[in-house]
Design a protein around this nucleic acid. Structure first.
Lengths: 213, 213
DNA sequence: GCAGTTGCGGAGCGATTCGCTCCGGCATAG
DNA sequence: CTATGCCGGAGCGAATCGCTCCGCAACTGC
């Protein structure tokens, strides 16, 4: 038997997960109604828990930062620097750390958030330092590179589009393909490659059609 | 002196470029008004050239496919298989090949589009086959992997967000950081690494908080 | 210099969707 | 069986959507 309290607690968790998923698919366009529907609750219930849409996103942002920090600490707990670093990256990518980017500019940043973000930076720095020292990470890769890599892979256009089109049957294949991509990128982090740019390898490859970038 | 005809021609090119940029920043939410404003023309002018929003996107889609095919042909023209392949990838990423993904499901696919897409697949296959034969590309990397890599890097959450926030001053640094990421991924494509998954390296890294994926 | 023509920008249309409120109905407690 | 409180969703005003249409400015032929 499920009491009403059980349901309430489950909704709390489900709501944030739904928010993350909808955010991944719809970007900044994500609507409160879509999040509530995805979570399987009414709009009223959502607003009983979070006063505004912004409050929901702030809460989600905090959860995201918490996950980052916990994953980094778990990574540091691993005695193998390379295993710890890659476990951290995998965890963050799977969590979808990049999905909040579209709304990052629309919500107010609390000092709790910035404090946790600062701690997250420190943890990642340590993760990278350890890997450098052990010689398992190419020297010219910085902590910033790792952050960007996580953010870049945190959203998957292919997976998002499939999910929106309701082709859930293809999701496993897409997820697998994505894991292959991440594995490729991780291999690129190992030592023994030429130096990174600097100036890009082939500056003017692009047709003159586009000027930007 | 600029005649009216000059302006008209320039608008034609500028319009598609603006559409691509706005699409990158706003995703499927991109509005016609935003595209016209970005291009520096009135809404009326946009609708004089394209009957509907869909027609504009279809035209952009064709342009995107043309760029893919031209870049692939240029890559094949290079006698060095690795240089040709990486030049192709760089060109497609810089063009922003992934930015159309959010609207791909909303526009009707003409047979001209699917024909060009098929040709693009063939060209990429040949690019990959050459590289495999020359031994400069790891054996377990497929053409699909390359496509996904291009799509994944075709959008840059960081760059898009900076541009939306009007921090144009930071764009060069962000673009540079992005190039570093691509270089890392390309290095991961070289031979001499362990096999790709298959089953992911660390299946249950993730906290149990999220169930999806 | 003047009338005629062409193409431009943007105000404004109806429709849609947004964040959010509020209330009728149902499940549970006593 | 009554009383209580939480739930879902209809519906509010505001904002935004794709798109039309017209007044004005810029150029041409005389």
């Amino acid at each position: 038997m499920t009491t009403r309290k059980d349901i309430a607690e489950r909704n709390d968790r489900t709501l944030l997960q739904a928010a993350r998923d909808v955010l991944a698919e719809d970007g900044a366009h994500a609507s409160v109604a879509a999040i509530a529907t995805r979570a399987g609750v009414g709009i009223g219930s959502l607003y009983r828990r979070y006063k505004t849409k912004e409050e929901l996103f702030q809460r989600l942002s905090l959860l995201s930062l918490d996950h980052w920090n916990e994953a980094a600490e778990q990574g540091l707990a691993d005695s193998d620097p390379w295993a710890g670093l890659t476990a951290f990256i995998h965890s963050c990518v799977a969590f979808g750390q990049g999905t909040l980017a579209p709304v990052a500019g629309t919500i107010e940043v609390t000092q709790e958030m910035s404090a946790k973000a600062r701690r997250g930076d420190e943890l990642l720095d340590e993760l990278v330092r350890r890997a450098h020292q052990a010689g398992v990470l190419r020297r010219d890769v910085t902590a910033v590179d790792i952050s960007l890599l996580i953010e870049q892979f945190g959203r998957s256009p292919v997976v998002d589009q499939l999910r929106k089109q309701g082709r859930g049957d293809l999701l496993p294949a897409a997820a697998e393909a994505r894991r292959r991509l991440i594995a490729i990128a991780l291999d690129g982090l190992r030592p023994g490659h030429g130096p990174l740019p600097g100036s890009p390898p082939g500056e003017e490859l692009f047709t003159g059609r586009w000027s930007s970038e």
